[in-house]
Simulated assay, not measured.
Amino acid sequence: MFKVGIIGCGGRGRSHAQGYTASKDVKIVACADPKKENAVEMAKVHNIPESGIYSDYKEMLAKEKPDIVSVCVWTGLHYDIIIDAVNAGVKAIHAEKPMAPTWGESKRIYQACVDKGVVITFCHQRRFGAPFVKAKQLANDGTIGQLHRVEGYCPNLFDWGTHWFDMFHFYNNDEPAEWVMGQINWEEERTAFAIQLETDGLSYVKWKNNVYGLLVTGRSTGGGCNNRLIGTKGMIEVYVNNGPAIRVMHEGAAGWQIPSLDDVPKGDDTVLSVLNLIDCLKTGKEPELSGRKALQATELIFASYESSRRRARIYLPLNIEDSPLLSMMEEGVIGPKRKD
């Protein structure tokens, strides 16, 4: 029986807790939140004893010694909390995305876990969503021929983009990316978890197996769907605007078809992500949402920013430490400090 501690008892923390509650192999023994009332409420729902309620996560780690920790706090707090959890001796960490505000912090988080043998996952939970799983099946079983290009449309490259970059890798069987070209525009302040975002953005990616990707972000993307997968003999669209969750067009079919989802797992995506982590902790398999995979998606975010900064194609691996977006804003290249 694995002991679980949850750090951050807001909406995402509650979603993680539902996943642990669905498993017979774990027990939530403690929860921590600076707003203690959030921890108290979680304790009531999940039968956590009063002694397991904390406002200081460090105290929780020291006293409860959990095997698994969920980190469900704002992105800028991830680094310190995850490193503290690793040093406290946890076996596994399930963290919210994005990984960290900078590429350097993201790499160090992952490496710290590798060095100490800690299994870390980041909640790119759409890998468990039925329409996304079906899209991957159809992209790889010949229905649309050979996968050639993937597209995504969303509000920003960082908070939303991390999901679609991760899905691009998912559809393409986690093949390594080769290069990235990107551009960003800043016209008004937008933030996610107190991290500055672009107003509009573009990212064009090439993978080593000759699949290409395009992510368009901002105020008017014109995509018509969340994701589009284009093959040599057809096309798939996922979450069509004012339309179905998934549809496919391919040779030999008359127009758009709605594929059945009967053969793909169903359930709450986050709950399924937690259950997968627990199973992999028992079996030693790599989790579907592993830190290695999260790092691939995160690299594309910061490579897109770096391409905009350097006005160049960025060949991977990405050899920077900062967030080029945040650095350009601080230096007045873009943003409210811009010096015209």
Rank of each mutant, 00 (worst) to 15 (best):
Q125H: 15
D141H: 06
M167E: 10
F128L: 12
G222K: 09
G161W: 04
D84K: 02
Y305L: 07
L289M: 12
G129P: 03
N172W: 03
G52C: 07
A297K: 00
G223V: 10
Q111N: 12
L295D: 00
E37F: 03
L157D: 01
N209E: 03
M60G: 06
M235Q: 15
G243N: 08
R338K: 14
L316Y: 09
I320E: 01
T102E: 10
G332N: 09
T270S: 00
H16V: 01
R292M: 02
V119F: 04
R247V: 01
G231T: 07
G234Y: 01
G267Y: 11
T221E: 05
T232A: 14
P98A: 14
G10V: 03
Y110R: 08
I301T: 13
G11W: 02
N173T: 09
W103V: 01
G19D: 01
I83S: 04
V274D: 08
A177T: 06
G291Y: 02
W179V: 04
C154T: 14
R108F: 06
R228C: 05
I314P: 08
G10N: 00
S51I: 11
I278V: 10
W164C: 06
A39R: 13
F193Y: 11
R338E: 07
L300M: 11
P98M: 02
L147M: 15
A130Q: 12
Y315G: 03
E50C: 06
M235H: 04
K35Q: 13
I320G: 01
K134M: 15
S51F: 03
T221Y: 02
I82S: 01
P131F: 13
D56R: 07
E286Y: 01
R292G: 08
C31S: 13
K107I: 08
G5V: 05
P101Q: 12
D268H: 10
L197E: 12
K58G: 06
V45K: 14
C123P: 02
K35Y: 13
D80G: 11
G332C: 05
Y239D: 13
F170R: 05
Y20C: 08
C72E: 08
Q257K: 07
D263Y: 01
R310D: 05
E331I: 01
P317F: 04
D200K: 10
D174K: 03
L229R: 00
T162N: 09
N156T: 00
Y57K: 05
L77S: 14
D279A: 15
V26M: 01
L281R: 03
P34A: 07
R14I: 03
S15I: 00
H78Y: 09
T298W: 00
I28N: 11
P287Y: 12
V26P: 10
V274Y: 06
G19R: 08
M249H: 14
A194S: 14
V180S: 03
E188H: 15
T191H: 09
D279H: 14
G223R: 06
A297G: 13
R14Y: 04
G335K: 06
A312I: 05
L275S: 07
H16Y: 15
I120A: 12
H163G: 09
D269H: 05
L277T: 03
G104W: 01
G5S: 15
N172R: 02
I278D: 02
P336E: 07
K282W: 02
I53A: 04
E96N: 10
Q257E: 13
F170C: 08
E41S: 10
A32D: 02
Y20M: 12
S307Y: 06
H124S: 02
I301Y: 00
C280L: 01
Q18A: 15
G223F: 13
I93Y: 05
